[in-house]
Deep mutational scan, measured.
Amino acid sequence: MLDDRARMEAAKKEKVEQILAEFQLQEEDLKKVMRRMQKEMDRGLRLETHEEASVKMLPTYVRSTPEGSEVGDFLSLDLGGTNFRVMLVKVGEGEEGQWSVKTKHQMYSIPEDAMTGTAEMLFDYISECISDFLDKHQMKHKKLPLGFTFSFPVRHEDIDKGILLNWTKGFKASGAEGNNVVGLLRDAIKRRGDFEMDVVAMVNDTVATMISCYYEDHQCEVGMIVGTGCNACYMEEMQNVELVEGDEGRMCVNTEWGAFGDSGELDEFLLEYDRLVDESSANPGQQLYEKLIGGKYMGELVRLVLLRLVDENLLFHGEASEQLRTRGAFETRFVSQVESDTGDRKQIYNILSTLGLRPSTTDCDIVRRACESVSTRAAHMCSAGLAGVINRMRESRSEDVMRITVGVDGSVYKLHPSFKERFHASVRRLTPSCEITFIESEEGSGRGAALVSAVACKKACMLGQ
C-alpha cells in the first residue's frame, strides 16, 4: 500500500517536472537572447534605426563620474514606483581627507489618484512632500541643488532636461508624456511658492545606482535594477552614441532593455503563462523582457503555473481556492519566502493557508518547484541581457580580458534567497573573457542622484555659470 502511494507521488512529481521543464533555458538559448539583445542595442544607438529599435539606448548626458572633490548639501528625489523618497545628502571631506556622503531620508507613498490623475496632481503632491521634508529638517530658507531620480523612459536633451516617452509600472498621470519632466517639477514648486529649489540633474535609477557604486569602486561602469521592473545602464564610447554629437570619451546610456521583445525577438521563448500575464497587464505587448524578470510579474506567473497544475490534477487534489483564482493573489514576496523555507515546509504551508488552501507535504514541495522554475528562468533571462552589455563593452574597448564592476539594486536581487547566485553564475558562463565584480548599492537611487548633481554643480562652477 505504502509502495503504491510512494509510486503515485513519484509519478505525480515526474509529471510536474515535465510541465515545469518549459521554463528551462539551455545555454544556447541564452546565447541567442544575448546576441539578439546586442543587435537591438546597436539599432538603438544608431541614428537611422533608433526610432524602430525596441531597446532605445537613451543617452543620459552623464559623462563624468564623481571624483571626490564636490562638497555641499544636496536634496535628492526618487520616483520610480508607488513609494517616493526625499533625501538630504551631505557631501563633504571625511576623516583623513576621505570623501564622505551622509544621508537623511523619508519615504512617502503615492496615492492612487496622483498616479493615475493628471501630471499637475502628481507633481503638486511631490512638491508637497518636499515642503514637508524641508519643514522637518528646518531647511526651507536654503535654496538647495536638487537631483531627481526618475525611473521611467526619458529622452534627455541635457542633464536637466528630459522628455517622458511613456509611463510604465502602473503610472498613468495624463499630460506628462511628451513633456519635460524637470519643467513639470519646477512648475509645481513655483505653484507652491513656499520654498526654492535648483533642479540641476535628472537621472534614471540605473544611472543613480551606477554612480553610487562608483563611489565604492571606481571600476563600476554598469548599473542595473532588478526590482519591480528590470533595466540597466553602462558607459558607452561616445563615438557609438549617434544621437549625441561628439566622439570623445564616454557617456552613460540608459538601455531601457525592459522593452526588448516588443518587436518579436522573444516570441519563441514566451510561454502561455507569459501571454496571460501580458494580456492582463496595463501595457499589453510592451516591456516583454521586463515581464519575464521583474517583481511586478513574478508572483503572478507562479500563480498561473499553480492553476495549470491544479487543472492537471497534480496539486491540491485538483481544487483551487477562490483566493488562488484571484489575479495578483500570489505576491512576489511569497516566491522569495517559499524558496527561503528551511525544509520543514512550515513557511510554505503558512503562505498557502493564507490563500485558503490546506496543502499536503507533496503540495508544498511542488509549489516550491514552481517558484524555483519561474525565478530561475528570470535570473537566466536577466543574465543574457547583462552578458550582452558586458561583452559589447569588452569588444568596443578591444580588451582581451576586461575587469568590470556592476552596481545592482532592486528588491528581487536583494531579497530573493537564490536569485543573485543563479544570476551571477549564468552571467559568468556567458562572459568567459571578463572578470566581473557585483556590488549592491546602498540607498543607491538617492545618493547617486545627489552625486550626479554634485558633478553638475562642479561643472557649472568651472564653466562660470
Rank of each mutant, 00 (worst) to 15 (best):
L304P: 03
D274T: 01
S54F: 06
G72A: 03
Y61M: 02
N179K: 15
G261R: 03
E319R: 15
Y234F: 15
S445L: 03
S373K: 06
I130Y: 00
R36F: 06
V305D: 03
T168Q: 03
S280L: 11
A454M: 14
K90N: 15
K291R: 08
C371Q: 04
S280I: 14
M202W: 01
D78Y: 07
T437H: 05
F438C: 07
L324R: 03
V33R: 03
H137S: 11
S383M: 05
G183T: 13
N180G: 01
E272Y: 08
N240T: 09
D247A: 06
E177F: 03
P153F: 02
L25A: 08
C382M: 03
L352G: 09
I110V: 05
A208G: 06
E196C: 14
G299A: 07
D365L: 12
E300F: 02
G446W: 00
E435P: 11
S69D: 12
G407F: 01
I110L: 12
G162K: 03
G246Y: 01
V367K: 08
L309M: 05
D4A: 04
I130H: 00
V401Q: 08
E322D: 09
T431A: 12
D4W: 15
D78E: 02
L307V: 10
V241R: 02
D205K: 05
S396N: 12
L304K: 03
G193S: 09
A259R: 11
V305Q: 13
F438W: 07
Q106N: 11
V305E: 06
S360T: 11
K142Q: 07
M238E: 15
R345V: 09
R46L: 07
N179V: 10
K296F: 04
L45S: 10
V89A: 13
F260N: 02
N283Q: 11
G295D: 02
L430S: 06
E265T: 11
C461M: 14
G68W: 04
D247E: 12
G223E: 03
C252H: 03
D132A: 08
N166W: 04
K136N: 07
P66E: 06
A450H: 01
S109Q: 05
M238N: 13
Q286F: 07
N391R: 10
L2Y: 11
I404L: 08
F171Y: 04
G223C: 02
L357P: 06
T405Y: 09
V455T: 12
E95D: 11
N391M: 14
D73F: 12
C364Q: 09
V226R: 02
E395Q: 05
G170M: 03
G295K: 02
F195G: 03
G81E: 00
G318T: 13
T118C: 06
S321L: 13
D113S: 10
Y108K: 00
F438H: 05
R192V: 04
D4F: 12
S340I: 12
A282I: 11
N204A: 04
R397M: 08
I293T: 01
S383R: 04
D205Q: 00
S353G: 13
E443R: 07
L77V: 04
L357V: 05
F171Q: 04
F148V: 07
S433G: 10
D344Q: 11
D78C: 03
S396C: 11
S426P: 05
V241P: 04
S281V: 06
T60K: 04
L144P: 08
E440V: 13
S373W: 06
W167K: 02
M115A: 04
Y413M: 07
C461L: 14
G92Q: 03
D135V: 09
R403I: 07
D187G: 05
A208M: 08
C252R: 01
D187T: 02
G294L: 01
D132I: 04
S100N: 11
G183I: 00
K296M: 09
M87Q: 00
T65G: 14
K142L: 05
A456V: 15
Q18W: 08
E312W: 08
G68L: 13
H50V: 03
V374M: 08
R394E: 14
E242F: 06
K39H: 11
R186P: 02
V199T: 00
G246S: 10
R333F: 10
G318L: 13
E290I: 00
D42N: 13
F84C: 01
G227I: 02
L45N: 03
V452G: 03
V101F: 12
T103V: 02
N204W: 00
G299N: 04
Q323P: 11
T342V: 13
E442F: 15
M381H: 07
R422I: 12
Q465S: 09
L20P: 05
M202P: 02
P417R: 12
L451H: 01
R250E: 14
E93Y: 08
L314Q: 15
I19E: 11
R63S: 14
V222C: 06
A282E: 15
E9K: 14
I159F: 04
P417D: 10
M381C: 05
A379S: 06
V207S: 04
K90I: 08
L144R: 13
F330Y: 09
I293V: 07
L386H: 02
E236G: 00
E395V: 12
R46F: 10
T209L: 06
K32W: 06
G343Y: 07
T342R: 11
T332K: 07
R428M: 08
I404W: 06
D205I: 00
R369F: 11
Y215G: 15
E221I: 12
L301W: 03
L146F: 07
Y234L: 01
G448V: 00
V406K: 00
L324D: 02
E339W: 04
R7S: 08
D78S: 01
E242T: 14
E322M: 14
C371G: 10
G410Q: 04
V253K: 04
V412P: 13
M235F: 15
L75C: 11
S263Q: 15
D73E: 15
E268S: 12
C457S: 13
K104R: 10
Q287W: 04
E51F: 07
E331P: 08
A259Q: 08
E157Q: 04
G94C: 11
S127M: 01
A378K: 05
V335N: 14
V412N: 03
V154A: 03
V101W: 13
T118M: 02
C382N: 00
H218Q: 07
D217A: 15
I439K: 13
T103S: 14
L45R: 04
K172I: 03
V408N: 04
A282T: 14
Y297C: 02
N254Q: 04
G72T: 06
T362K: 10
E256Q: 01
L122G: 02
E248H: 08
Q98P: 03
R327L: 10
P359D: 04
Y349E: 11
T168P: 04
Q465L: 14
I348P: 07
I126R: 05
G193Q: 07
K102S: 10
S396R: 09
Q323D: 14
P111I: 05
T206E: 01
S453A: 15
S54V: 12
K143G: 05
F74T: 07
H137Y: 07
K296S: 15
V16D: 08
